[in-house]
Amino acid sequence: MLNARISVPTSAIPGEVIEIKTLISHPMETGFRRGLDGEKMPRNILKHFQCTYLDNVVFEAEFFPAIAANPYLTFFIKATQSGELIFTWTDQNGKVTQKNRSISVQP
């Protein structure tokens, strides 16, 4: 499980556009660099990010070797009702890091 930071407002009013921020620790090794021994360092990257809100995918991203280490993503969603946001990062080997946050939406 990777170390991640997630920022979601704890409450919102229905229809409000809220900002979601995520930051995850990952080396995002490109596979093109050579180490001190002269050998190529194997590629090690995150491939996919997904955010679901009330079981619907609201944001998705695909990562490639050119993404910097510790990927930082920020995006906006419209809050409709109280529920859970699930954040899922999947690396190149299919290993999954999942975090969730809940938001209360009241008028």
Binding site: N3, R5, K21, L23, I24, S25, A69
Partner: peptide, 12 residues
């Protein structure tokens, strides 16, 4: 105070 990547290490 959120995006500073060094804070990932402070957290861990």
């Amino acid at each position: 105070s959120f995006a500073n990547p060094g804070l990932l290490w402070v957290d861990s």
